[in-house]
């Protein structure tokens, strides 16, 4: 007997995944990256050519000005490597009260210009750091990455990030951790305490930690297949399906724009090639001038089980 699909699992619990008000504009500026992390669902790496151009950025800015969002979230790849990133950040800055810039930390090395722009613009930082153990971090991201990540966190702290309210307002520093393999992450509370203790010993402060399950797409899925872990991992995600997190899933409230301007319901659907649809079933492009429609159905796939496992991806 075949396993229930995600859609069937939702239906069995009397649930439907429908778009709520899209109050977060997430902009993926491309899959070009300085790292090739083992858990990357987008297969970002050096040499990728899918990079958002300035014309598409202007369409994003037009949307952001027309339909105000509560938050904007710039991600990649490594967004630092987009040659027009400053143009996007300067334009987006006034469009939302909350602004988050995602970084793998290493791509910020030597980018004082960009750091200054982020700090001056009140952009929060969402920094990925899989673990506080060198072997675990470097197993995911490559040799030598751990100490360099810590060093960049110290640089961010020195700039006022993660230090609580200061002159000119609070500069938020959030860490994002994914497990280093085919297992689920620890609960956020204990993981935060462990990170705070370990990084505190290194003189590093941060505001909060978010722990997320690895999504079986892209490079991580290839590794699951090669290592013989795919079936067991998918089984684990299904087994831990938690219907209570469905209504708070982030895909319900995000307008996720891909490097070429296509609109998705989340970054994972972007990787899976599942577009955001209007109520009439049409795909959406940022140049259409409006975000996802409230009440529209969200396309789902097997990967969605990663966001509903345990405490979920909200």
């Amino acid at each position: 007997m075949s396993e229930a699909t995600f859609a069937e699992t939702l239906a069995a619990h009397g649930l439907a995944l429908l778009k709520a008000k899209a109050d977060c504009l997430q902009v993926n500026v491309g899959s070009l990256c300085n790292l090739s992390c083992g858990h990357c669902h987008l297969e970002a790496r050096p040499g990728r050519t899918e990079v958002m151009d300035r014309a598409t950025m202007d369409e994003v800015l037009a949307l952001a000005r027309r339909a105000p969002f509560a938050s904007v979230d710039v991600t990649g790849g490594a967004p630092e490597l987009n040659p027009d990133i400053a143009h996007l950040l300067l334009g987006l800055g006034p469009c939302a009260p909350r602004r988050i810039f995602r970084t793998n930390l290493l791509a910020l090395e030597g980018r004082d210009d960009l750091l200054g722009l982020l700090a001056d613009g009140g952009w929060g930082i969402g920094a990925s750091l899989p673990a506080v153990n060198a072997a675990q971090v470097e197993g995911v991201r490559g040799a030598g990455v751990f100490q360099r990540s810590l060093e960049m966190l110290r640089v961010l702290n020195a700039r006022g990030y993660g230090q609580g309210p200061g002159q000119g307002g609070r500069l938020e520093l959030h860490l994002v951790s994914n497990p280093g393999g085919a297992f689920l992450p620890p609960a956020q509370g204990p993981a935060t305490r462990a990170f705070r203790q370990a990084l505190g010993r290194q003189g590093i402060a941060f505001d909060s930690l978010f722990v997320f399950a690895n999504v079986p797409l892209g490079r991580f899925r290839s590794w699951l297949e090669r290592s013989g872990n795919l079936e067991a991992y998918l089984g684990l995600l299904r087994q831990r399906f938690n219907p209570e997190v469905v209504c708070g899933l982030m895909c319900r409230s995000i307008c996720s724009v891909g490097w070429d301007g296509r609109v998705y319901d989340c970054d994972f659907n972007q990787a899976a090639g599942l577009p955001c649809l209007t109520a009439e079933g049409e795909t959406l492009h940022v140049r259409d001038g409006h975000g996802p429609e409230q009440g529209a159905a969200i396309l789902v796939g097997e990967h969605c089980f990663a966001c509903t496992a345990g405490s979920g991806f909200t």
């Binding site: 297992f183 620890p186 993981a191």
Partner: peptide
């Protein structure tokens, strides 16, 4: 082994 990983322990 799996529970330790899920609770945030490392190989060391």
């Amino acid at each position: 082994t799996n529970t330790c990983l899920e609770k945030g322990s490392n190989a060391d």
